[in-house]
Design a protein around this nucleic acid. Structure first.
Lengths: 214, 214, 214, 214
DNA sequence: GATGAATGAGTATTCATTCAT
DNA sequence: GATGAATGAATACTCATTCAT
């Protein structure tokens, strides 16, 4: 049993790495067992199906992220930094992402989507705690905390995941987050230094500036 | 030529409906040609590949949405209502969505994602125009318009698409949109009547309220 | 493992027979598995692709021929007969050839060509040994042995493979082979009795005897 | 009719070039009509089938070669040079061959084979005339002329077509041709200067030198 | 002479899953 | 616990050919 557990964990790691690097759809059971050096029957001894494996892989991933988030939550750093730290830790680490940041490659969308969804689910209550903490300390001031936290997470995910955001995106994100949580203007400016815009502002917009209507 | 065009349009419609109702991945070429009552060769006479068909289907869909959006843009209704109208028209109409609202079913994720992405791309410049109009009229007040518009769209998509939002989500969305664009508090309250929350507030949160840490 | 090997050999035999009798291009995977009574997956469990199967089939064939050739090489028969024996054994046995002798039917050309090429490659070093032996014994006398052997093989293949050669072709072949290897005039005459010309001399030429020029 | 003929000739030229450059099997009717800028129906107005087109293409090619050969035959140059000239002209010009000399690529084998066969058929009677001429002049001395000529052609084709022959191959070829036709030793040495071996002698043989038997 | 829409049989390959040993 | 042989449904795409206009 102990041995079996270890084996399963091992397989999970392999599946994880392969799903991440080549996409779920592009990874066949054969790929996995080849890499693991086991027989096909063995794989099916440990997993019911490929989909169940994906589920398990995601669960494992989530647990890791959440663990990190909780340790931040329980630490003694200031509330504002907790928010940022947890939000960051909740996002799949860059090195875990498919190469070339090709999250949009169809073969990766499904897994990516599932992960994001689960992470938001898990993170909302955690961050809500932090916001409540902040309200007690007078740093934040707002109602409907979980809903606000959820929107903040969505914005963060959708804006920064693709890796093609600009300084302006960061500016707006900071502004809106402060207002979302009722924080002091500029109190979250420090985020700016933590996020490096890979694309200088103004480039993206040029081509979008189309003349419309009359 | 006329005849060929009609035929192609017909096939596009069929593909569209099938992709929408059973998902792109779950629709085989055979399904499409059976439905259309044509030979396989005929299908490939009009489309290069299945993927290209998806692209064409999405393009068709987008064009429809954008057309509607532009007619709103060019109309004489108040700026605030333009914003809401365009934002709504930009979202795939509910009846166009896969049955059971199962946008999250893996087989639909890819198409859904592609559509959302293209719609945002197309809508940002349109809405930016409206916001500028609003600024001139003193209704809005903000900088970095395209970035703000983009975030508003993302929030709108992610919040209302799933069909499982609450009144609180609506409240927060209104609050944040007003702040995002620098609108008067409560000036966008009227949205509330246009969006009906399918899930009463407070239900979702119960299960998320987990005890954490020590 | 033993079992798998047997199965593979079995499939190889079936593929071999089918490729030979109806041509590689005209044999579909479905034909093969129908004949073998196995599922498609099973076929692909043993072979990577149709082309790889062809490769394997040819390899098997070659090995058989070469084995026969080597046993002749190692025997004690006179050098002249070794040459003839190996040259003959190196040629695909008539019963192995596509029915109707239709080697020229396009569907067979590819395989036929590949086989000939590989056989020549394999046979040249073998026959070179024999020629060296013959030189030591004073039966042959020549330089550039591998090149000469290769040409002899080509001539033999191209002349006798089609199955439409005449007595005169045999005469010329004998003459030229003797000269090629520096053998005594008439020392290889005995070949004549081993090769039966299916077409009496003089028939082919009639139609070719065209008046040319002015 | 005149116009139709021109059109057909035009199509033939296109088909010819495409078959040559990408192989018969790899050239689809669609490729041809795209290149020609005509409709599919038009193609079938001029040709019965793809195979018939190949036949016509080859016929056209052969005619060109034979024409050149005949003009050499009728000229006043010495017999030995006629032999060489015709033999060379009979071989598909290098620039007509598939790129990269990949005659062995399966997609080209069929056409290549057909061409070689037809060329030999056509060339044998021509060269036989020359050899007879040579016999009258005392330059050659042999019987069974067509058979000898045929073998010479085969040897020439098989040896020099691949483009990977050595100086030794040339030496042996000269030696054997002289003996085949009963020419004076060294009388054909001049060929050597006309053929440039792309591969220095001795390289190929190394790897073939395998130890065999006991 | 010319068009181009329509055909449909044909083909190789993939892959998650099962199960007897 | 572990194996690996066997399965077979599923699928996208090709292409020479026909024929009504």
């Amino acid at each position: 049993m102990r041995k079996g557990e270890r084996r399963k964990r091992e397989l999970l790691d392999i599946a994880y790495r392969m799903f991440i690097s080549r996409g779920y759809e592009n990874t066949s059971i054969d790929d996995i067992i080849d890499e693991a050096g086991i027989a096909k029957g063995t794989y099916y001894y440990y997993f019911e199906s490929k989909e169940q494996t994906l589920e398990a892989v995601i669960e494992m991933m989530i647990e890791n992220e959440i663990e990190a988030a909780i340790s931040i939550l329980d630490s003694n750093i200031p509330v504002l930094q907790k928010i940022v730290g947890i939000t960051a830790s909740i996002r799949p680490a860059p090195e875990e992402l498919p190469i070339e940041g090709a999250l949009m490659r169809p073969e990766n969308i499904i897994m990516h989507q599932k992960i994001k969804q689960r992470l938001v689910e898990k993170a909302v209550p955690l961050l809500s705690k932090v916001v409540e903490e902040g309200i007690e300390q007078g740093v934040f001031s707002c109602d409907n905390i979980p809903e606000r936290v959820r929107m903040m997470l969505i914005l963060s995910n959708e804006t920064f995941d693709e890796g093609s955001f600009t300084d302006r995106d960061v500016d707006v994100f900071i502004d809106i987050t402060e207002k979302l949580l009722g924080a002091q203007k500029h109190s979250m400016d420090f985020i700016r230094h933590l996020i490096v815009a890979p694309v200088p502002s103004g480039i993206e917009n040029t081509e979008i500036d189309i003349e419309i209507g009359g």
